[in-house]
């Protein structure tokens, strides 16, 4: 039961990209060991800038 709730919560967070920063840190740790990752705030702002540079919404 608790597992189901936890899974559901994880899905909601993934759906809203709420887990983007954690995902970025994991990727960063694996791929760019020797550099300092962006802070949560910097990452959020840069992601928004990237996301809204292309066609993301339709009619």
């Amino acid at each position: 039961m608790i597992q189901t709730i936890r899974n559901g919560w994880r899905r909601v967070r993934a759906l809203m990209s709420d887990d983007g920063y954690a995902r970025y840190l994991r990727h960063h740790a694996a791929a760019h060991e020797n550099t300092t990752p962006l802070s949560r705030r910097e990452f959020y702002l840069r992601e928004q800038e990237r996301k809204w540079s292309g066609i993301r919404r339709c009619c």
């Binding site: 909601v12 967070r13 809203m16 990209s17 709420d18 949560r40 705030r41 959020y44 702002l45």
Partner: peptide
């Protein structure tokens, strides 16, 4: 809120 108070916590903010 999402930039300064709780950066990137989009579920909460929404």
């Amino acid at each position: 809120y999402l930039r300064d108070i709780r950066p990137g916590r989009v579920v909460e903010g929404s």
